[in-house]
Design a binder for these strands. Structure first.
Length: 351
DNA sequence: AGAATTTGACCATG
DNA sequence: CATGGTCAAATTCT
């Protein structure tokens, strides 16, 4: 625990030191140096700041989160810990399940992206493909919003117990902007992930694919030119990597029927860029963090941390956590733990 | 026919 | 009680 805190502090110091070094590099850089070099350095420096800030924001809870990970197995009264298996024989099983669903809603990780659809194509463009297959299960008029909110869940929910859902809300101000709130993470294996961009262009209206590529380029530019990403949202808040999975916790017992056959580890690998999962050196990692995201979705995505409430929800999801194979996997911690540059033994968190 | 979407009803939450 | 989120029957699509 203390060790973990120290380690976190060390990482923070490392980040800041690295940022300083990079700034120095930039300072010493030949004024005639290639613009790309400058931008690359700038990018790294900003990344250092972002990561540091992110650590600070999360730092307060870090101390709680780590033991929480360890406590996951021993606090069985959370959403999946309600031991649903027993309730299967209960006539009220369904109601119980229903309740659990609502309980779960609170504990699932949540993050928001704002997606701008190319305005030229107009209204017929629906929310874009993000490489996953979704099934719409509801639509609701939202108070004060001009457009209804659409609810999607993973197509493989029944087959693979994937609990990922998303809500798509068209922006009032700019109809070409969709706010997509993701909840939970995919535990399913989606074949389309092999080539998400390709798959998406196949599945969606063909004319979008080109636009997406353009947007991808455009956002790449945004990232490389100082991260001033218009007014969509603040990408630097990406860093709370709660929204990205990493290694599944090993000793899962599988009590919840919802996750009757939890998907194996490589499904996560298939769902997200390896850059999230196996950080290399910070330098190489930071940039890939932004760029790989673009590569995954192939379009104009900006992650937005929803709120502090969400963080606590997420944290509580893990503190109260359970034997859900997916409930506890989306931790910055995991990513951190994986950092090979750290001498820290991750297993200490789980013992 | 099977998959996907629509839509009204139901439920939890604040 | 109002609202947002989900369910599930009905309907549409492929």
């Amino acid at each position: 625990m203390e060790k973990a805190m120290d380690w976190e502090a060390n990482r923070l110091i490392n980040e800041l030191t690295q940022g300083r070094d990079l700034a120095n590099q930039l300072k010493r850089l030949d004024p005639k140096a290639a613009r790309d070099d400058c931008e690359s350095l700038l990018e790294k420096i900003l990344s250092c700041y972002e990561k540091s800030l992110s650590m600070l924001n999360w730092g307060a809870s870090v101390g709680e989160r780590r033991p929480a990970m360890g406590g996951v197995m021993e606090s069985p009264h959370s959403f999946a810990g309600s031991n649903p298996r027993n309730e299967l024989s209960d006539p009220d099983c369904k109601d119980q399940f229903h309740r659990d669903v609502f309980k779960k809603r609170k504990t699932l990780p949540r993050w928001t992206e704002q997606v701008r659809v190319c305005s030229g194509t107009g209204a017929e463009v629906g929310p874009l493909d993000d490489g996953y297959s979704w099934r719409k299960y509801g639509q609701k008029d939202i108070l004060g919003a001009n457009f209804p909110r659409a609810y999607y869940r993973c197509t493989h929910r029944n087959v693979q117990g994937c609990l990922a859902t998303k809500q798509v809300q068209r922006s009032d101000e700019d109809a070409s902007i969709f706010q997509i709130t993701y909840r939970g993470r995919h535990t399913c294996i989606q074949s389309s992930h092999l080539t998400p961009a390709l798959a998406s262009s196949e599945r969606e209206k063909p004319k979008q694919s080109e636009e997406k590529q353009e947007q991808s380029q455009e956002i790449h530019l945004n990232f490389t030119t100082g991260l001033k990403v218009e007014d969509l949202s603040t990408w630097e808040e990406n860093f709370p990597s709660f929204s990205f999975p990493s290694t599944p916790i090993e000793s899962e017992n599988e009590e919840s029927p919802i996750f009757a056959e939890p998907v194996k580890e490589n499904s996560f690998m298939g769902s997200y860029s390896p850059s999230f999962l196996s950080p290399t050196t910070p330098e190489s990692n930071y940039f890939s963090l932004s760029s790989c995201q673009m590569d995954i979705f192939g379009m104009d995505y900006n992650l937005q941390q929803t709120s502090e409430c969400d963080i606590t929800e997420i944290i509580s999801a893990h503190t109260s956590g359970t034997n859900s194979p997916i409930g506890d996997l989306d931790f910055p911690l995991d990513q951190v733990v994986l950092d090979p540059s750290s001498p820290f033994d991750p297993s200490e968190f789980f013992t």
